[in-house]
Structures are given as structure tokens and as C-alpha cells.
Amino acid sequence: MSMIKTDKLIYEYAKLDDEGNVIGTNRAIDAVDLEVEPGQFVAILGHNGSGKSTLAKQLNAILTPTEGTVWVAGRNTKEPENIWDVRQSAGMVFQNPDNQIIGTVVEEDVGFGPENLGVPTDEIWTRVEESLKKVGMIEYRHHSPNKLSGGQKQRVAIAGVIAMRPQCIVLDEPTAMLDPNGRKEVLRTVEELRKKEKVTVILITHYMEEVVGADRVIVMDKGSIVMEGSPKRIFSRVEELKKYRLDVPQATLLAYELQKKGVKLPDGILSTEELVEALCQLN
């Protein structure tokens, strides 16, 4: 069974006038067919307003389809009785850690999710401890979240999600507000969850370097999927990406600029190591 499957998913936001009357609709997602297998790491790219975040919100039933269907772990998100199961299966992490943390002590914040699921108290504490260990924040369990750095807060937010034991985590620009170290911390944590816990990961980001390790990259534009493939294949289409207001990692851009100057490099170079290796081959 697919972890996530959407069939001709359409979502329209209502346009309201000053009095709150509906005066039209705005199609944010336009006939998206998406299938994500358990354990996959799928990255979603797209410019501001391309529909990425709206799609993410469909994956744990914050929003439900206007037309078409979304199944999370086989459950139709449109059925009201599925909502808790859907949200337990697909956990979300948002951009701003300060909007997601509600506890005054780290461990209480992490326990909030399982508590809402009705998990018995002893089991909650076991899960809190486990989750904080998995994100490398166990030594901060008695701290106030206010005093943590951005990267640490985001890791606490991730711990709060994995304490609910989801099969899938959807991260909507989790690193946009972080400094370079915070970004690395969060990505390393996500990578470990994927490898050790086999959690399905859906990552939305504007940082192209973060996408290099994905199994599959999806590019969205005007609510539709316009490109799809391995990072290697997607990032070898530099001009097309630019058309969609995107970019490529610096190593890829450098290789592309060198190719334009006549240097015979292979397409789809993604990392420093690959570029250095390819240049060594030339010499």
C-alpha cells in the first residue's frame, strides 16, 4: 500500500469580499496525482505561491480536497472518522518553530501529541524519552524551549511529531529561519529518522542543497506537478528550473557554467565531491 496517494486532487481557496461573502475561487492545486511509497524521501520544490504548502496541508487533513481524493496510509482524508488516524500517520513540522512549541518545558511539549492521542501516561513518558533521544535533545528535557536555538527548537518540534509514531513526516520549509548549523542539525535528524526508523519523509524547501539526497524531486508550478525525477535528472535541467523561479546547488551551477565554457563535464553533478572527482578525471 502506498504511504500517500492522491488522485486528481484539486483544491480551491474561496475569495472573500470585505463582508466575508464568497466572490470567487482560487485554484491552488490543480489535478495532482502523487504516489509516495513507504520509506521514500520525496522533496517538493516550487516558487512562492506554487501550491507546495497547500499540498502539504492536504497530507494530514488540515485541508481536504475540493475535488479528487487523498489517501494517507490507505485512509481517505475526506472521511471525518479518519481524521485522527490520518494525523497520527502523517505528522507535520512547519517553518517557524516558535509557532509550534506550546509547552513551558521541553519534555512536556513533546508529550503533548501522544497525550492528545490518549496514550497512557507511562507510555507517554517512554515515548518522550525515546523521541528526544532520536533527535539528540535528551539532555535538554527539563529546559525551557524559549532558551533554545532555532535548530534545537525545530528538533524539539520533530520530537513532538515522532512521539506520535507517525509513518510519515511532512516538513514545510523547516530550515527557512535557521542559521547554517541549525539547518545541518535539522537535516541530519531527518536523515537519521529515515535511515533508522524507515519513516517516509516529504520535505518542502527553497534550499536546493537540501534536496540532493532525496529519492525523488517534485517541482510544482501553478498547482500542478511540472517536473519529477531523481535529483540528478532534475538538476541537470538548469534552464527549465530557472524558468520555474528555482535554482540548483552551487556545485551544479559551477559545473553548468564550466560546461558552457566548453569543459567536458557530465550532466547532473550535485555535490562538491562529484564535481572535484569529475574535474580530476579530465586532467
Binding site: 547554517p180 542543497e209 552551487q250 556545485a251 551551477l253 559551477l254 557554467e257 562538491t272 572535484v276 574535474l279
Partner: peptide, 30 residues
């Protein structure tokens, strides 16, 4: 201190280590 150099700077350092005689103070693609 939690920061980094641009990725190109790392590329230049890696090239130098592999014997290329490049200037490692480079900070932009151009």
C-alpha cells in the same frame, strides 16, 4: 561558531587538495 563558507569555497579547497593550482580565496561562482 555555527557558520560556513559558500559551497564554491569548499570546492576550491577540495580541488587544491587534489593537486589543482587554484586560488582558494574564491567566494563566488563567476
Amino acid at each position: 561558531v555555527g557558520l560556513a563558507a559558500p559551497q564554491v569555497t569548499y570546492i576550491m579547497h577540495a580541488l587544491k587538495e587534489r593537486g589543482f593550482r587554484v586560488d582558494t580565496s574564491v567566494t563566488t561562482i563567476d
